[in-house]
Design a protein around this nucleic acid. Sequence first.
DNA 1: ACAGTTTCCCGTAAATGC
DNA 2: TGCATTTACGGGAAACTG
Lengths: 442, 442
Amino acid sequence: MVSSRSFVVSKQPSLPYPCKRPLIIKTSTQFLVTARFLVNFQELRHRMKVSFKIDKYPAEIKGYRRFNLLGSQEKDLEYTQCDGLAVEFKHLTLKEQRAGGGGKGSKGVNEGSRSVQEELHIITLMTQFSYDGVELNIEATTLPFVVISNQSQFVRAWASILWFNLLSTDPKDVAFFSKPPAAKWILVADVLSWQFSCCTGRGLNADQLQMLGKKLCGSVPNQDSTVTWSKFAKESMPRVSFTFWEWFDAILTLVKAHLENIWKDGYVMGFVSRSAEDALLRTRQQGTFLLRFSESMRDGGITISWVDHESDGSFVRSVEPFTKKELSNIPLYEIIRNYQLLAEENIPENPLKFLYPNIPKDDAFGKYYEHNSEVNSEYQKYMKRRLIMVSERNNDETQSSIASGTPQYISDTLSNDNDIFSPVHGEYCHDAADLGNFINRK
Amino acid sequence: MVSSRSFVVSKQPSLPYPCKRPLIIKTSTQFLVTARFLVNFQELRHRMKVSFKIDKYPAEIKGYRRFNLLGSQEKDLEYTQCDGLAVEFKHLTLKEQRAGGGGKGSKGVNEGSRSVQEELHIITLMTQFSYDGVELNIEATTLPFVVISNQSQFVRAWASILWFNLLSTDPKDVAFFSKPPAAKWILVADVLSWQFSCCTGRGLNADQLQMLGKKLCGSVPNQDSTVTWSKFAKESMPRVSFTFWEWFDAILTLVKAHLENIWKDGYVMGFVSRSAEDALLRTRQQGTFLLRFSESMRDGGITISWVDHESDGSFVRSVEPFTKKELSNIPLYEIIRNYQLLAEENIPENPLKFLYPNIPKDDAFGKYYEHNSEVNSEYQKYMKRRLIMVSERNNDETQSSIASGTPQYISDTLSNDNDIFSPVHGEYCHDAADLGNFINRK
DNA sequence: ACAGTTTCCCGTAAATGC
DNA sequence: TGCATTTACGGGAAACTG
């Protein structure tokens, strides 16, 4: 009845983070672990002391960093109405145990150049059960987690956590990344969409996923396509110096921070290739535009592309992508609202009229426009001013001719033009439950 | 010959800081102290050990925080060609010694509500001189410094350091702020100008100082005017919730960060009252403008004011002041270059033509304009875009009528219109030596 | 409830060592 | 030399305490 399975970790170690990504711990930063004793003996409270340890590795694991786990070493099992018998370790921190002399940087070179983001660590909570003549040493272990020393490692660490929880068959397999398995595309697509739905409330539709699948698999993925760990998060993509996951996550972050409302409305096509975009826009009326994520920017960028029919043909033009830097000054819908093409001695013109396929831009974005607020009493004496985004209209012909030089094929992989505005595909529709649920779902 | 005066602190404790403000130490942040032994016995190197202590206060000083000074406790006196016999303590840090239980915040209430920025602390370096039968214990003490726990306290701490070094007659008087003396305006003016010249290379002229003097003394200051410590850095100015020094330092920081080039050129009048500005501009030709610091913004702001002659009179208009937020997106000279008043279906107009008194704006700022750089190979495929600042031209009459309601008196305190462009007054002209020199100058 | 002060921690930059 | 990693710390915000 009381077995070693009666004592379990109920909150996995995690940093406080907006998007609640658990199982990533930063050194010298406080985190929290809780465990529950699944036996209904209220009398046990204050009679069981819980202690902890980290990483008693078997000898075959080499090159892992060693950590000291700091915090109040022992706590009593407490009883609360809602959690029953439980213990909560707050204010835990991790500090690397360094071989004498080893300063910053460079952990010892280990076989296969495993990165720190691929090191998995485990915390074990220990207690003694002693009741009615029965004595038992019992343990609860956390899931494997990744230890980072700087926030900049967070993105790659999360890739590891996702991959492990997607594919591992043994929840204590800290050597998982010594030969990480490949994943079926269908599973990866699920995770990608779910990252969006859990952060923003809206997942990815079939067209968007197909564009991503092409990037990961090399061509349009089918039922049997697989994605290797290396392709997912280790090797740089062609012609750029960052990995698929770094790029994808940067966009996710950009959307969460600056585009959440229009993303939720389904107004950001986003994951669409330049050639597909060209095909979609060319046949549309003058001034039709769409929003597309940059494929070449590491930190996440979004561009506006619009069609311009002129006497000598139709051109698709795109503005230099906007990044978090620009978007934290002006929301994208305000850029769209006020964008101007300037030309000497001419009335400026806004080329953006209809959101693809044919929604007047104010119908789509009007509800978000900032009202030119009543004169602020504080600054009544001043003229209000605002930033707007402009481009030069006659910026010599070299620029626009590049756009017109894009091949005009219609991507055979495109489905119905209207998909971007339809509800997301059922298969990829998750509710916004936190990531812990995803892990437990398996 | 060898006396206790032979051992002196040669580098006062200080954080690394762009503008080199010494004598402010932040807890848990590394700082440095060096001392020299002014005796030319090379043989003494490695034979004298130097140790340190902090703050052995006499009993009458109550309510000061106590600190532990951490770092390698003892170092040898070394010899170098350029410094002679010297010792350098690097990687020192300060940690507060807190009475048990005292958590964050709230140091014990001390008489007279002295703030932490008014607490002065001293470090003493100690060594033994032993040579040729002579034995001597000798000490070197630092100047009093302020210990802060967050960068946000830096500005107020620097006010303390300036006031102390301006007025103290005893370099070890850590109780200085128990009754801080007032300063002659002439001395304060000197410091204010010198803050600018040391940070930017250009000080303040007589007009600018007079405007500041009025703020501090209540009316145009004369030879006998004095400024109290409270007026300088303790009490809020009328109608705003910040002190003179906080306001002044915020502007200094803004100038240093975003306006240094045009400030050095003398193109920022800056410290000029609204009424003086009005008087200066009204008689000037259409489109004459000047740059004035906001008096109501805590974090530093600068506005552009220009004169607009219309059939029903002349108006001085000002745009809502720009802060570091805006200026880190667009330099002020680019705002001036491209500022536009918009009106429906009209060619936008830039109202800024001549920098006061009559310099065509491109003559003043042209050298800083960004060249619309060659098409960046990375983003060749995109249209270049940029931010510009705009206001609505017909923003209803209520706004402009406020400006026209300003009294039209000509300030009798104004000197020659051209002063802003003439070299700074000799009395306030310092070279850009670092602040340590200022302290030693006394 | 508030204000002064300290702690926390992200994100950028610099330092470090292989 | 470059790269991976850690440390340092400014700045905003939360936490703490009387």
